[in-house]
């Protein structure tokens, strides 16, 4: 009898039934994109008066730590590429002719998105899930950065329970200040089993009235040689396109 009571108390008071936040975060990453992939993104900065500026990037990623993004448009930015190897980030500008080290918080083109947004690794690589709770038909993940090189100290992520993709993310600084809010929308089937939002909208209390939109397309699983993610390769990233 005592044995059964003990087992019952373990089942009632242990975390056996709790959602494993880190496993859930890993699943969310895989639903958003494969671990190694190529994709195209259009970044649209919208000013309070409605004026827009558009940028197109080609991005390739391998494994947990390596990602490189190349600007294809507009002509004033064409050929710029940013490389990230874990905590290391470099920027290559064709006229400068050699890569320079940059920090994740710098804004690449001005506006709401910064280097870290453009060279984002998997959420599960950068964050630990500290808490998972429920809110209506959504799961809410409280995420804490694994180290100081991550741009946002904390994220609060609302995830659609059924599709297990994020709907909204709030990004906070270490001081607790809200830096920006991201809204995922327009779910699309990209093929290869990738069904995910095709649009990400961002606003920030630091840029009142401004909005940035990121459109995703051409997401495909693809494997790359490690040498693609090196300084020497940065001027040649565009050659990876098919």
């Amino acid at each position: 009898m005592v044995k059964y009571l003990l087992l019952l108390s373990i089942l009632l008071f242990s975390d056996v039934w709790a959602v494993d936040g880190n496993a859930l975060l890993f699943d969310i990453d895989r639903r958003l994109q494969p671990e190694s992939y190529e994709m195209y993104r259009k970044l649209i900065n919208i000013e309070p008066d409605g004026d827009r500026k558009e940028f197109v990037l080609y991005t390739v990623k391998k494994g947990k730590n390596d990602v490189v993004a190349l600007f294809l448009d507009p002509p004033s930015e064409k050929g710029r590429s940013s490389l990230r190897q874990g905590e290391n980030m470099w920027l290559y500008i064709p006229n400068v002719g050699k890569p320079i080290r940059i920090t994740s918080l710098q804004s690449v083109v001005g506006g709401v998105f910064n280097n870290s947004d453009l060279l984002r690794l998997d959420y599960s690589t950068e964050y630990d899930a500290e808490k998972v709770s429920e809110e209506n038909d959504q799961l809410v993940l409280d995420l804490k950065a694994k180290n100081r090189s991550v741009s946002y100290d904390r994220l609060k992520m609302w995830v659609n329970k059924k599709t297990q993709v994020p709907a909204k993310i709030e990004a906070y600084a270490a001081s607790g200040m809200l830096i920006k809010t991201l809204y995922y929308s327009k779910t699309k089937d990209f093929g290869n089993g990738i069904v995910r939002p095709a649009m990400l909208e961002t606003d920030s209390p630091l840029y009142k009235g401004y909005k940035s939109v990121m459109l995703f397309d051409g997401i495909k699983p693809r494997d790359f040689n490690d040498e693609v993610f090196t300084l020497n390769y940065m001027p040649r990233v565009g050659e990876l396109r098919k």
Binding site: Y40, K42, I44, V56, Y58, L72, D73, P75, S76, K78, M199, V213, L215, D217, G218, G238, E239, R241, K242
Partner: peptide, 19 residues
Amino acid sequence: EFSFDVSSYEKKRYEWGGY
């Protein structure tokens, strides 16, 4: 409003630009 035609950014035989 938010159209995105990826095909126009695929690799082409030639590219040019400048200022």
